[in-house]
């Protein structure tokens, strides 16, 4: 047991280990690595990376759990959307990818010995999280995606919609910053 502990303590100080798992990557390294795997995703599946479309399916499953029915909603009316919903949570590739992001980030944090449960500090944070989360979800449906699907993937796909979304995202972020400094600080 002691030897194991010593091994991990030694590993934590190992120069190469620190470089890869402890010190943050630069933003540029992040950009390059994400782009590589974005391209791999596109090359293998024929579809670019998307995140928030899956959240709508999660919402539909939750709604079904409490007895609701989305089958007659226009959004879920296509055969494709119905098929995804009928396959279920653990058979949905998009779900697996979103859960993967959570676990990938968890692994990265633990391997750096930096994991900590960060509790909510104030009521303001509760309001900000609820309101912010909700309007992000709603907005993403109107714009056919989020910062990944409607921005990153759309721009990479040479779609003008990506640039238009970027412009309004920036306007929103500007107002969001004002709101934040006024009410949530």
């Amino acid at each position: 047991m002691r030897a194991v502990k010593e091994f991990f303590d030694k590993l934590a100080k190992n120069e190469t280990y620190v470089k890869i798992f402890k010190t943050p990557f630069t933003y540029l390294t992040g950009a390059i690595l994400l782009s590589i795997f974005q391209v791999v995703t596109f090359g293998v599946t024929g579809e670019p990376w998307g995140v928030s479309g899956t959240f709508a399916n999660w919402g539909a499953w939750l709604y079904r759990l409490v007895g609701g029915n989305v089958d007659r909603w226009y959004y879920f009316s296509s055969a494709g959307a119905q098929a995804v919903l009928d396959r279920g949570f653990f058979n949905d590739p998009g779900t697996m990818r979103n859960l993967g992001i959570i676990f990938g980030a968890l692994a990265a944090t633990l391997l750096a010995s930096q994991f900590k449960i960060k509790k909510i500090k104030s009521k303001k944070q509760v309001v900000a999280a609820i309101l912010g989360g909700f309007i992000m979800g709603y907005g993403a449906r109107l714009a056919y995606g989020c910062n990944i699907g409607a921005l990153y993937s759309a721009i990479a796909s040479l779609s003008l919609s990506g640039w238009v979304f970027a412009l309004f995202l920036f306007i929103g972020a500007f107002f969001g910053s004002k709101l934040l400094s006024k009410f949530f600080m």
Binding site: K118, I120, K121, Q125, S177, L180, M185
Partner: peptide, 13 residues
């Protein structure tokens, strides 16, 4: 700034 989410710590600093 413990428990504060981005960008609040930066703005306060």
């Amino acid at each position: 700034c413990l428990g504060e989410a981005c960008p609040v710590p930066l703005m306060k600093t």
